[in-house]
Design a protein around this nucleic acid. Structure first.
Lengths: 218, 218, 218, 218
DNA sequence: TATGAATGAGCATTCATTCAT
DNA sequence: TATGAATGAATGCTCATTCAT
């Protein structure tokens, strides 16, 4: 099952490291499906248990509270979503590689996140829906972003500005425009209208062109 | 109270047409505050009643169900949010004026929505959070957009393409990029980080420049 | 309106003695209809008010509580239902007339009650449904029956027994059988299956024959 | 506890087939007591729970709604009340045995129902009180009676008429008089005045004599 | 007198969570 | 470890009743 594999991958599972029992995976799958369809507050543990084919008590054996279940789904996503930028080698890859040009940087960034959202759209949806309601989610996210990513991102932007490749706007604004543009395309494709017939590659390419042109120094 | 005025405006109230009693406005205000802070499902009518300073029963005298209360908040917003594009004169103004250039069109669009989101950020937040969970919200929104706005928008885009002002990408993609970019900036400013010290005008101008450059035909 | 006339009659109204306003009659009618359809406990004053075309508060201006409304409907019925046996002249007519025979007594009794239940079936239904749940109804009823009716009824029965017209069973049992038989026919015709095509006169005659034969001394 | 045994019997329980838990029986007992004392609509689940010594939530674990609780009490009664006449062997016993005479038929019928009502008077009271307010109860009852019982009953009556044992009145009327008379006695004894000192056997015998004489062809 | 908005206690029902098995 | 019956607080909603107009 793709979903299951994707889930295992998200949880960094491999056959040697079977920390999660079959039932536990069933619970996680069911919770992801339910949370993403109805939202966290409108999902009942009873429904999740039924969908997972386990007793309601079983959920609470693995997760002390319903909120812990939410966190156990969303936290690894956050780690993976932002983690790469934190991890030294990857951050290097993204931010420290001597890109030939700005477009290469953007393309690298965009397709990297594209793969990610494509594989984990349900969990991304949950994260987006819930993040503003739960400080346990919001705070580490902000902290992570500000402490590890923003500075590196900013440095990269400044480099391209100094190289006269891109406009001289405030780096914060440029970062925001980059993130908004990529995120906007990904959300449109995978969350807002997943049923539409997207030509994914083409949309990504146009998004990249748009971004690069929009920020290019003339 | 600003909030109150904004609410009245949203409900198209004027002094001659006092359809809403003081208590009813209190209920609406309290509901907007609670829904936007906690989400619809996590807000209890008991809490809303307390915040509004009325008895719980009073809420149900005005709104048959909790969901009706949500709809009564969000529906007028939808009407106002999309309505202008539907109304003949305004649609003309936006889509049929012979703009000198593409930038003028974008600036007009962007600042028009800027004023709107600035004044109704709480309700906009509720709409965004809840729209995907309630078909009663989703369906009329989609219908309205597809039937009234999309075609006019597309025609305008094609006109600028024929005038060789903007790139020859699929109009759907261009529309998406325009909406995403403007919406992204507005959400960042008013919903994601409302507490930050935004230089609103400047951010808007840069967003417009970014959009225009990104889509300009070279 | 027949219903209305019947109601006025039940309330002993005449044109000279307009104690009841038009609104009050509307309320009583609506209450009778609702109580008899849904039962007292399942009827809401809100529904009664709507049906009567008055404001909910108006009901409580005339009747301090919902229960008082019930009592005001059912008490006059009880008075009329049992009253005749209490009133001196009527009691004489029923119990003290020198009937030629037992059959004449039964026929007199049966057709007298027939007219009554026919005209007031809704209120009779309410009385029957509610009497066992409300001591305010039950107790005066029992008292009235035991103090005023039972003894006279018993004396009449004994007279027919001494005249060797009817069987020598305990008078209590005979009274019970008479009441059950007449009541059974009336309930069948007017409450249990009012929609059926009853040949009322014939059913009454057969009921009387059955009663007379069943109790005749052979 | 007699009540409990009677309840178990009604639910066709035996030691091998313990489908009902102790708590569930407690809930049913409490519900029967409450419904029969106050009526369905005036009984609160809160009160039933307290009387049963369980949490309110426990009721709804076993019965989805309050109405389902009512039906679960009353439906088995209906099955048992009318069921015998439906079941082939019993229907034979009642309707197809070659009775020596009409009296034997009536006695058989009367004592059979006597035992039943004696054992289940509370539930019979609930059924009678509620049947006219709930179509879920009324419809199957009418259907059952009309389809299975009425025709057989009628055939038996006609047989006795052809044997010149009973009067030549419409069979429908005769059936009604029989049911009313037996039901009237049983209701008087067990529901209307259960506290009185009834000489049950004697009352039953007199009721039977009354019925037989009343319908005997002279 | 009549209104109908307002009340808050009470209702049936759902929920996350516990715990004996 | 897994179960699922049991819990009781909380929920959305209804109700009879009050009261200012």
């Amino acid at each position: 099952m793709t979903q299951n594999n994707s889930l295992k991958e998200l949880l960094r599972l491999n056959t040697n490291d079977e920390k999660y029992s079959e039932k536990q995976l069933k619970i996680l799958e069911a919770a992801i499906e339910t949370f993403s369809e109805k939202g966290y507050a409108a999902s009942s543990t009873n429904e999740i248990a039924k969908k997972a084919g386990v007793a309601e008590g079983t959920i609470f054996r693995h997760y002390k509270t319903k909120k812990e279940l939410l966190l156990s789904i969303v936290t690894p996503l956050m780690t993976k979503l932002l983690g790469p930028f934190v991890a030294k080698d990857f951050a290097k890859e993204i931010f420290e590689v001597n890109y030939d040009n700005f477009e290469q940087f953007i393309r690298n960034l965009a397709f990297n996140r594209y793969e990610f959202v494509k594989n984990h759209s349900s969990v991304v949806k949950i994260l987006i829906q819930e993040i503003s309601f739960h400080d346990e989610l919001k705070e580490p996210y902000i902290k992570l972003f500000q402490e590890h990513i923003f500075e590196k991102f900013k440095a990269t932007i400044i480099k391209f500005q100094e190289a006269k490749e891109i406009v001289n706007w405030p780096p914060e604004t440029i970062i925001r425009l980059i993130i908004n543009t990529i995120a906007g395309t990904l959300l449109s494709m995978f969350l807002l209208r997943p049923e539409a017939n997207w030509r994914y590659e083409e949309e990504m390419e146009l998004t990249i062109s748009f971004l690069v042109n929009g920020l290019k120094l003339k």
